[in-house]
């Protein structure tokens, strides 16, 4: 599995992603500098968390125009797997690759804690090694993570099974108390209709080793690797 990890000025979780992919999973990884064009020669691309371009104007608003992004948009258009984590999720929404937007947390506070996520659909390259209803633990750390989409978009997301993860409690319920930021319908992660672009606010790269308190994040990366293996084998 060959990964590309985008690096923007202000990215700060790129090294965590690289570490998880290279040293925990043993995959090939290269970083994709924001000023360089991207040739698409990867099996999967990750847009990491952080504060690209200082989060000026709106989180993710500037990064979508970085030179590297055109190649990533083309890569996605050919079916390539693209994962956006936290600020990466914000960038994918700003770029129009994912529906909806991420807005200021309802509490107005930066939230930094472990959350439980319920897998809604396993029929995706990002959750294929899980089962619907599985609970994954990962940390969140963001100030602008409240997912918003209008009623029409929410209907479409439901109809096409695009909500892959929701914030949940320990028994798999989705009460308000389990929602760290006020996201509509406890939505933590959504994919596009084609199911090859996925964004989530929680950080799978910070939950890949027991030393970090759990391995809930491995499911996302392992699923993508399994999908690539399936594609290459077919």
């Amino acid at each position: 599995m060959r990964w590309g990890v985008a690096v923007f000025p202000g990215s700060c979780d790129d090294d965590d992603v690289v570490h998880s992919l290279r040293h925990v999973l043993g995959h090939d990884v290269r970083t994709l500098w924001h000023k360089d064009p991207f040739d698409g020669r990867c099996d999967g691309v990750v847009l990491p968390g952080g504060f690209s371009y200082g989060d000026y104007l709106r989180a993710g608003a500037m990064a979508r125009f970085a030179p590297v992004m055109q190649g990533i948009v083309d890569f996605a258009a050919t079916g390539g797997l693209v994962l956006g984590i936290c600020n990466g999720f914000q960038i994918l929404c700003e770029a129009g690759l994912l529906p909806g937007a991420l807005t200021r947390n309802e509490s107005l506070r930066f939230v930094c804690r472990r959350v439980t996520l319920r897998v809604e659909h396993a029929r995706s390259p990002f959750t294929r090694t899980a089962r619907p209803g599985d609970l994954l633990e990962m940390p969140v750390k963001h100030g602008e993570g409240r997912y918003y989409a209008d009623a029409l978009t929410l209907d479409e997301l439901r109809d096409h099974g695009q909500v892959l993860l929701r914030y949940a409690d320990a028994v798999g319920g989705t009460p308000d108390a389990a929602n760290p930021n006020g996201s509509v319908e406890n939505i933590a992660g959504v994919c596009n209709r084609r199911r090859n672009v996925f964004g989530l606010m929680p950080h799978p790269e910070d939950a890949t080793e027991e030393l970090l308190g759990g391995v809930g994040g491995l499911t996302i990366f392992s699923s993508m690797a399994a999908e690539v293996e399936r594609r290459n084998g077919a």
Partner: peptide, 8 residues
């Protein structure tokens, strides 16, 4: 293109 996000 940039200054406003039409979604929100």
């Amino acid at each position: 293109k940039l200054l406003a996000n039409p979604v929100i």
